[in-house]
């Protein structure tokens, strides 16, 4: 474990001595602040668009940091030959991979904390919804008493919807918990992403191919992963079987994207569900790291 921590420390030092993180943070902050200074119809209380754009920028920046940092680790060590003096020490290849992963993941965590703190300051500075006027009515259009009466009947009209307390999402503790959950789940997702990219870095020879393929793959999973089953059901066999198998095998990273819940002041997710998602992320990360070690352990490192 000592070796793993030592190697991870080097990765973190490298990240904060490079300019990438600072550039991305400044860019995110700049865009958010510029958009925040725009007035729409002389209304200073509009906040959700800002939260949406800020969170989108945070997600993009975090993926850039995670993928570019992880993709660089092993290939650059080999190219720069810094891997040789390191592996000439009593360090196993497994410890090397674990150290690189931990360093990248911790570095992403530090970056996320800074980003989310900024997000919190920006969104809270705009003010939150008044808890007495959350502004939510369940279903149906607002016109007429007849429609309002119908509105009560329609609560839970969407299959599988949960009971919703209109005020639950805006209490200060609730808001803070929401932010913490969003950060934690985001960080767990970046663990899976880092592991995917590390695996790519021992499979693909060029870091640029790894970065491109990883970006496309991960964006595909985030945007399309949850819908593959719907697409599969509309296909004929054997495409249906292939798509459904892919759907079950892919890591479902979209579970960890709860931006909508933060933007729309939803109540926090149950602790059990968060824990299960965390276990899922840990399991996938472990599997991917094991595969990385399996590929890397017999690789010839020639001088």
């Amino acid at each position: 474990m000592n070796n793993v921590l030592a190697i991870s420390g080097i990765v973190i030092k490298e990240l904060y001595r490079r300019k990438d993180f600072y550039v991305l943070f400044v860019l995110t902050a700049l865009i958010t602040l510029v958009l925040g200074s725009v007035s729409f119809f002389n209304d200073a209380k509009i906040v959700r668009y800002l939260k949406e754009i800020c969170l989108l920028l945070i997600w993009v920046a975090s993926l850039v940091i995670a993928i570019s940092t992880a993709a660089r680790q092993i290939p650059v060590e080999r190219e720069n030959r810094t891997i040789f003096p390191l592996l000439a020490k009593p360090v196993t290849r497994g410890q090397f991979i674990l150290g690189k992963f931990l360093g990248c993941w911790l570095a992403c965590g530090v970056a996320l904390v800074v980003f989310y703190l900024f997000f919190g300051v920006v969104s809270e500075s705009r003010g939150r919804s008044d808890p007495a006027a959350t502004g939510l009515t369940s279903s149906a259009a607002p016109a007429g008493p007849a429609a309002s009466a119908k509105a009560d009947d329609h609560e839970g009209a969407a299959g599988g919807s949960e009971h919703h307390d209109d005020h639950a999402g805006t209490e200060p503790f609730s808001v803070l918990l929401n932010y913490v959950q969003a950060l934690a789940l985001h960080w767990l997702m970046l663990g899976v992403v880092t592991a995917i990219v590390l695996l790519g870095s021992v499979v693909f020879s060029a870091p640029s191919s790894n970065v491109t393929i990883s970006f496309i793959g991960i964006l595909g999973i985030l945007l399309l992963g949850e819908h593959l089953n719907k697409v599969a059901l509309r296909q004929q066999q054997p495409a249906q079987a292939i798509l459904y198998t892919t759907y079950f095998l892919l890591p479902h990273l979209e579970w960890f994207d709860i931006r909508d819940r933060v933007i729309y002041d939803q109540p926090p997710i149950a602790f059990v569900d968060c824990s299960l998602a965390a276990l899922y992320a840990i399991a996938y990360t472990g599997l991917l790291l094991f595969l990385t070690w399996f590929v890397f352990r017999r690789k010839t490192l020639t001088l």
Binding site: D43, L136, L276
Partner: peptide
């Protein structure tokens, strides 16, 4: 349709609501 979708709904917004009581401002930008 499956357990993945069922579990995923815990992280999604699954209730049909409309903005009201002044919160309609959020659609303006």
């Amino acid at each position: 349709r499956d357990w993945i979708e069922a579990f995923g709904r815990h992280f999604r917004i699954t209730e049909h609501t409309h903005l009201a009581h002044g919160q309609e401002r959020e659609i303006l930008p």
